[in-house]
């Protein structure tokens, strides 16, 4: 419906007289005549005549019960939730507010999307061209300089580094003599024929022992104590010794019919199990040999300690091994 203005109000009166004007139109016409008292109109029309019976019933719909900025804040989307609900209600019920909102919404200026900037390509930059900007060139130069400096430094360092002669001396253990040799001496002795039997590198012995121990799952630090008792003269506490694999061999004493021997149970890895045994045939060992035996025994144990042998085992059916007046007892 068109807005009633001074130019078209007659058309509305005609509609009213023809019965074609609805209630909303009639109300607007009333408001229009009220607001424009100078306009001539047929006063006998019941529509215009204000009587007690024909009071305007939609006053609330045209009251302005909101402040001036409320509609603008609503259109701008600045209202809080409760205010927004009130504004929506007002928009639905209050014609003045609704009209004001309508005008304000019309005031929003929509961009004309058909207008476009046609010279975009002129503004764009070529990626490759700007790869070599001043800053990028500086960056590359800095990286090259650092790389070059490092290369020069490393080169200098390599040239000035003192040659470290690796100690290639290998140490060997001769089981027959219980002696250690380095590879130079051993080679020399072998060339002279002084050593004809097989010698073993100490590092190999250690590795073999460790391997053997691991295979047998022998626990470390079992704290087996071996007592070597010779009339209470000497006691060796071999705390470090545990279940042991003794690397030893048969040795001879000066006494021709008496010898110190091991139980020669050959092991594949040249180790012989435990035992230092002495066959004496119930004869008393000469003092001289006893001394040698003692030296052999203590030397062996010391070497075993050095080899990290952690214990000494005896045969299962032997709890004591007699060594003349000496005895090795496993606790």
């Amino acid at each position: 419906m068109n807005k009633i203005t001074i130019n078209n109000y007659e058309a509305f009166i005609i509609d009213y007289l023809d019965g074609n004007l609805n209630e909303e139109g009639q109300n607007e016409l009333k408001v229009f005549f009220k607001n424009n008292p100078s306009i001539e109109h047929p006063t006998d029309l019941p529509l215009i005549t204000t009587t007690e019976k024909n009071n305007f019933t939609q006053k609330e719909s045209i009251k302005v019960n909101y402040n001036n900025s409320f509609a603008i804040e609503y259109v701008e989307g600045n209202l809080k939730k409760d205010e927004l609900l009130r504004a929506k209600k007002l928009e639905a019920e209050n014609k003045i507010f609704s009209l004001e909102v309508k005008y304000l919404k019309a005031c929003k200026i929509a961009p004309d999307k058909s207008i476009v900037f046609t010279e975009k390509e002129l503004l764009k930059k070529n990626k490759l061209l700007f790869l070599f900007t001043y800053k990028n060139v500086l960056r590359i130069a800095a990286i090259l300089l650092i790389t070059l400096s490092l290369a020069v430094f490393w080169n200098y360092k390599a040239h000035n580094q003192k040659t470290i002669v690796k100690n290639t001396t290998k140490k060997y253990f001769d089981m027959a003599s219980n002696k250690r040799y380095n590879n130079y001496n051993l080679k020399k002795l072998k060339a002279q024929g002084s050593i004809t039997h097989k010698t073993e590198r100490i590092s190999n012995l250690k590795n073999q022992f460790i391997k053997k121990r691991n295979e047998k799952n022998i626990p470390q630090n079992k704290n087996t104590v071996i007592k070597i008792d010779s009339n209470n003269l000497i006691k060796l506490n071999a705390n470090k010794l545990d279940n042991m694999i003794v690397a030893t061999d048969t040795i001879k004493t000066n006494s021709s019919d008496k010898q110190i021997a091991t139980n020669n149970n050959e092991l594949s890895d040249n180790f012989k199990e435990n035992i230092v045994a002495y066959e004496i045939e119930k004869e008393e060992m000469p003092k001289k040999d006893r001394g040698k035996l003692w030296i052999f025994l203590t030397t062996t144990i010391k070497k075993l300690n050095k080899l990290n042998v952690t214990g000494v085992n005896v045969n299962k059916n032997e709890s004591e091994i007699t060594l003349g007046q000496f005895s090795v007892t496993k606790n």
């Binding site: 961009p111 207008i115 476009v116 070529n126």
Partner: peptide, 22 residues
């Protein structure tokens, strides 16, 4: 970077032009 700048040309130049034109 350069590609982001070029993207800015594509995305904002129309709006900026309309604003300036108005």
């Amino acid at each position: 970077n350069v590609s982001e700048y070029n993207k800015c040309v594509d995305e904002f130049s129309d709006g900026l032009y309309r604003f300036m034109l108005k």
